[in-house]
Structure formats: structure tokens, C-alpha cells
């Protein structure tokens, strides 16, 4: 199995916030904490695009790099998790994360700021899989139940895909080929520019 990954198909997302609601309900996430949220670009303008964002479980995660107490770890499936017993709530991870994934509850261990909370890819934490202790700290461990993250499984338009990176990429590639557009939304060329663009920029 490759790494577990999320991808959100901006051509399909209808900004229903079903993923956000499903996540909060499944894991009983406290008030004020959103492990997932929907971001809309050009809201209200024809052609607006929405995308569901949470922890992207980076292959080279900046949160892991900056954590002073090394509370993060990565599973064999590439899921970035953290240990709340070690977290000191400093917030460095939230400054480092480009997606705004780390969240801090308003009430908690450190008075006005609790221990960091983020998307776990429905994989819980270091406690025993499916145990009450794990649920209390991190929510449900759906991977250990043989299921995929609730946000993707509940997505009504199947805009949000989650699972084995190879499988997710295959599904998205099929869609792009069928609709004959959309490949330009993601990929190397979009992120770093094509060779013609590079040439144009340098001239």
C-alpha cells in the first residue's frame, strides 16, 4: 500500500460542509475546533471554487520538524499523528503548517489554550486502537475498523477522496480524462510552472 492521502476535487465540491459536520460528529470535536473546513475562492462570483481542507498528512511534515517536544510521529501508512500527553501547546506547529490544520481548544490543559488537536485521518493516537482513552483524546479509529475517513465516505458528491494514494490518484485521473479538463488544477506544472512558462518568466 502506498501512503494514505486526501484530495479534493474542486470541480465537484458544492460547499455543503458535510465533511466538516461528519468529522465533528464522528470524533465529538469540541466547540471552536474544526479539524476540517471548506474554503471557497471567489465566493459569490460565477465560477467560484470550493475545496475541503484539513491536515494533508505531508510526506515531509513541517509540524514534525518544528515541534520542540517531538510529539509527532508517522504511521507506516504515512498518517501524521501526535501524542497529546507530550504536547505542550506551544503552537509552533500551527505557524509551520501551510494548511492551518493544528487547532487549539479554548478550554484545556493550559488554561486558555488546550493541547493541539488535528485531523488524524480517522486513525486515532498512540493509545490502544479503539479504546475509550483513544476516543477521548483523538476520536474514533476508523482505519483500525477497516474503514476510511468519515469526511470522504460521507461526501455526497465524492469530491473529497481519501485512502491509498495510488487508488485516489487513479480515481481522480479517470475523472479528469472523462471530463477532458481539470488536469491543470493539480500537478507539477501548476505548482512550479511549465517549461514554456519558465522560459517566458526568464525572458
Amino acid at each position: 500500500m502506498a501512503r494514505m492521502k486526501f484530495i479534493c476535487d474542486a470541480e465537484r465540491c458544492i460547499e455543503c460542509n458535510g465533511c466538516v459536520t461528519a468529522c465533528k460528529n464522528e470524533h465529538e470535536v469540541p466547540w471552536g475546533v474544526n479539524r476540517r473546513r471548506v474554503v471557497t475562492l471567489n465566493d459569490g462570483v460565477p465560477g467560484e471554487k470550493s475545496i475541503s481542507v484539513a491536515c494533508m498528512h505531508c510526506s515531509d511534515a513541517p509540524c514534525m520538524a518544528v515541534c520542540p517536544v517531538n510529539c509527532f510521529y508517522k504511521t507506516d501508512e504515512g498518517v501524521v499523528l501526535h501524542d497529546k500527553d507530550v504536547c505542550i501547546g506551544c503552537g509552533y506547529c500551527s505557524y509551520a503548517c501551510p494548511f492551518g490544520a493544528p487547532q487549539f481548544p479554548a478550554q484545556g490543559t493550559f488554561g486558555v489554550r488546550g493541547k493541539m488537536d488535528k485531523c488524524t485521518f480517522c486513525a486515532g493516537g498512540p493509545e490502544a486502537n479503539g479504546s475509550d482513552e483513544e476516543f477521548e483524546k483523538y476520536g474514533r479509529n476508523r482505519l483500525a475498523e477497516g474503514k476510511l475517513p468519515i469526511c470522504a465516505e460521507m461526501c455526497s458528491t465524492k469530491a473529497l477522496l481519501a485512502g491509498d494514494g495510488d487508488m485516489v490518484a487513479d480515481i481522480f485521473r479517470t475523472r479528469v480524462v472523462k471530463r477532458d479538463k481539470g488536469a491543470e488544477v493539480w500537478g507539477w506544472g501548476t505548482a512550479y510552472g511549465t517549461s514554456s512558462k519558465k522560459t517566458g518568466a526568464s525572458s
Partner: peptide
């Protein structure tokens, strides 16, 4: 400190 000994997901639940 360091890497945690998390039980792999394929081991199932408690």
C-alpha cells in the same frame, strides 16, 4: 520523546 509505539491499524481494535 521520540517515535511512538502506536499499534498498527491493521491489527484491529482492542
Amino acid at each position: 520523546l521520540g517515535s511512538k509505539n502506536d499499534q498498527p491499524a491493521y491489527q484491529g481494535v482492542q
